[in-house]
Amino acid sequence: MARSVHTFSIPSSTRYLEDVRRFVETHALEADLPEDSVEKFKIAVDEACTNVIEHAYGGDEHHRVDLAIIVEADQFTVRIRDNGVPFDTSNYQEPNLLELTKHRRGGGLGVHIMRRLMDHVEYRTRGSTNEVLLTMYRNANGNEG
């Protein structure tokens, strides 16, 4: 399979999350990912974009979120780029559901979901650009693990 790249940009507003999911779904299906992997990608990319919109850009809708889907023979990757506040992975702690409900909080689950659903999650910052790479590997049978 030849490597192919598909790009898409949205304003930094949650109202475009639905468009992001459709973009991911279209290209994941086109790349012959199984249905459950397509669902996993839709959620993981939604979570990554939500974090960019709400945290990196602090809810300011006057920015852009740039997405690229990179389809390769052995893996499927979605890259999400922003120019906001970088995500500090060193401060990240796995959420405790019981504690969150006791404190009437519902946040902090997005990164956990991304890590559970994807084979690999990587954060990078270069200059003023942050990116998160969400990757799923195809196994020998062409199915995702």
């Binding site: 999911r21 959620i43 939500t50 559901l97 969150l100 009437r104 519902g106 946040g107 979901i113």
Partner: peptide, 17 residues
């Protein structure tokens, strides 16, 4: 048809109350 953590968070925020 679909739920992300933002939706789940609503249940978590209100269940105790």
């Amino acid at each position: 048809q679909y739920i992300s953590s933002a939706g789940l968070g609503v249940f978590m925020a209100y269940i105790e109350e």
